[in-house]
């Protein structure tokens, strides 16, 4: 495995063995393949951190040598490996055991494709994703606002006997959950009366 092979945005390093293949042809016009001879076990380099290994229908049917290849890959490098596997009517029966091995035992990513054509399209999307800045991935974005006011107010209202009006009054006196938990019955009485004050104390200290 050649470590640190960097691919520029919109490009993919392709193992020489794929020259002329359906996968390589599928890249035309979308991403630029750069064929390299010394990629070893790796089939495609998406970036200097991520690469792709391809398991064909034949590989799966023939035996377990693909497993040894993946284990060798993991031992040889700290690169993140994505495994593309040809899941066809013929190789389908092996899929679950391949998935178990690759994902659950080796901890790698596995993506099934039905053909080289599908693999080609998927690789294009994977390359596009690598080129994007992190801010452009909607799944990564944190939607949470930094204001905790609504949540804190809702939390105080979870205390039995405390509705919105009392909650606001309590938070006025004891502006944090921490402070509220340490208020004495006497201090609480002044704000919400004896009964609710006792309910609040009980809520916090009952075991």
């Amino acid at each position: 495995v050649r470590a640190g092979a960097a691919a520029l945005y919109g490009q993919v390093l392709v193992n020489e063995k794929w020259r002329g293949s359906a996968i390589a042809q599928g890249f035309q016009g979308k991403i630029k393949p750069i064929f390299e001879d010394g990629l070893g076990l790796v089939d495609f380099h998406l970036s200097n951190q991520t690469c792709v290994l391809y398991i064909s229908e034949t590989d799966m049917v023939v035996g377990n040598s693909y497993k040894r290849k993946l284990v060798r890959f993991q031992k040889a490098t700290s690169l993140r490996g994505i495994v593309l596997v040809e899941k066809t009517r013929i190789s389908e029966q092996y899929f679950q055991s391949v998935q178990k091995f690759v994902v659950l035992e080796l901890g790698m990513t596995l993506l099934p494709v039905a053909s080289q054509t599908e693999a080609s399209q998927l690789l294009i999307q994977l390359v596009h994703e690598e080129s994007k800045e992190h801010g452009h991935n909607p799944f990564r974005r944190k939607s949470r606002s930094n204001l905790a006011e609504p949540a804190v107010l809702a939390m105080v209202q979870q205390i039995p006997g405390v509705g919105k009006v009392k909650a606001l009054a309590l938070l006025q006196q004891f502006p944090s959950i921490h402070q509220l938990s340490n208020a004495t019955t006497e201090e609480l009485e002044v704000v919400v009366g004896r009964t609710i004050a006792q309910q609040i104390r009980t809520f916090f200290i009952q075991t």
Binding site: T109, Q121, I124, Q125, E129, H134
Partner: peptide, 28 residues
């Protein structure tokens, strides 16, 4: 039909650190 949208969604999910597994039905 496998769509470009499907592939780009999977890619984005992977980019966000989501692990993905494939199943053919409820039993699996």
């Amino acid at each position: 039909q496998r769509t470009r949208y499907y592939d780009s969604t999977l890619s984005a999910l992977l980019g966000a650190g989501t692990r993905i597994l494939f199943s053919s039905g409820q039993e699996e």
